[in-house]
Amino acid sequence: MTANPTGERTTQAARNVLMDLAERGKKFKFLIRDRDTKFTDGFDAVFADEGTRTLKSPPQAAEP
């Protein structure tokens, strides 16, 4: 764990999660995530390779 994860670290974490889930990971159709920059195209690709579509949460409006 780290206080400041990088895109590489989150992508590896995605691989680890799917490896731990094994065949159960193939049952997920969607992954909903926020728009943080640590979630790179590589992160999304890990799930796409397993047939999971990544959906980004809507952007948040700035508070006045």
Rank of each mutant, 00 (worst) to 15 (best):
K27S: 13
R15M: 10
F43R: 01
G51P: 02
R24E: 14
F47M: 03
F43T: 05
F28M: 05
M19I: 11
D49Y: 02
T37M: 13
T11R: 06
R24V: 11
V46N: 05
Q12A: 13
Q12P: 07
Q12K: 13
E50W: 15
F43C: 01
L18G: 04
L55R: 01
N16H: 10
R24Q: 14
L31A: 10
R33E: 03
T11S: 05
F28T: 02
T54D: 06
A48D: 09
G25C: 06
L55W: 04
K29I: 09
A48V: 06
T52R: 07
K56V: 13
K26W: 10
F30H: 12
L18E: 08
G25Y: 06
K56M: 13
R35C: 04
L21S: 04
F39V: 06
K29G: 11
K38A: 08
L18H: 09
D36W: 07
F47E: 03
R33L: 06
G51D: 05
K26S: 12
D49G: 10
T11M: 04
R15F: 09
K56G: 10
A13M: 07
D34P: 08
R53H: 14
I32G: 07
F39Y: 12
Q12L: 12
A13N: 06
T52N: 05
L18T: 02
F47Y: 10
D34M: 06
R35N: 14
R15C: 10
T54G: 01
L21V: 02
E50M: 13
D34K: 08
Q12D: 11
T54I: 14
F39G: 00
F39M: 00
R24G: 00
L31K: 07
V46D: 00
L55F: 05
Q12C: 05
R53F: 15
F47R: 04
T11V: 05
F39N: 04
K56R: 15
T37Q: 12
A45G: 00
E50L: 11
D36F: 04
I32M: 08
R24L: 13
T52E: 01
Q12I: 08
K26T: 12
R35H: 08
A22K: 15
K38C: 09
G42D: 09
N16Q: 12
T40Q: 00
G25I: 03
K26N: 10
A22V: 06
T54C: 15
D20C: 12
F28Q: 04
G25E: 05
R24M: 10
T54Y: 01
T37P: 12
R53T: 15
E23S: 14
V17A: 15
R15Y: 10
F47T: 01
K27I: 07
D41K: 15
G42T: 02
V17E: 10
D41E: 14
F43A: 00
G51A: 01
E23P: 00
K27H: 13
G42L: 03
F39D: 03
K26L: 14
T52Y: 03
R15H: 15
E50G: 00
V46Q: 01
R33T: 08
A45Y: 03
N16R: 12
G42Q: 02
K27G: 11
E23Q: 13
L31R: 04
F43G: 01
D36I: 04
L31Q: 04
K56P: 00
D36R: 07
F43E: 02
I32V: 14
R35A: 08
